[in-house]
């Protein structure tokens, strides 16, 4: 292919999404918004993994699909994290009637 996509483009996309997710984590107060930002970061890592799988070296002992399998595990973990996160947020919401992270301040940091 003459004009294939360079690997660095995928990596830059992942880096940008990761940074956006990080900004979201640091600036948002709402716990669900933070959860969404975390999902963006996990997806950024997945893009990296799949790009490296496609463009990287083929090592016989690494297995044919190491990056893909890790990405599948990340998807699983993300689904579990969202379920757990929503459960915990609901629990806290019933206590405080608010879903803002900084409202839960009975514990001194």
């Amino acid at each position: 292919m003459e004009s294939d996509i360079p690997l660095s483009w995928f990596l830059l996309f992942a880096a940008a999404s990761f940074a956006i997710g990080l900004i979201g984590v640091l600036t948002r107060k709402n716990a669900i918004a933070v959860l969404m930002a975390i999902e963006i970061m996990l997806n950024a890592a997945n893009v990296n993994l799949v790009a490296f799988w496609r463009y990287g070296p083929e090592l016989p002992e690494a297995g044919p699909v190491a990056g893909i399998v890790l990405a599948i595990m990340v998807i699983t973990v993300a689904a579990a994290e969202v379920a757990v996160g929503i459960g915990l947020i609901l629990l806290c919401y019933r206590r405080w009637r608010a879903a803002d992270v900084d409202r839960y301040d009975s514990l001194a940091g």
């Binding site: 669900i32 969404m36 999902e39 993300a78 689904a79 996160g85 929503i86 947020i89 609901l90 919401y93």
Partner: peptide, 17 residues
Amino acid sequence: IYVGAVSILLMFGIMLT
């Protein structure tokens, strides 16, 4: 998983809170 399930789950979380 993401578009189908996770987004819906998040949406439910938002609506419930």
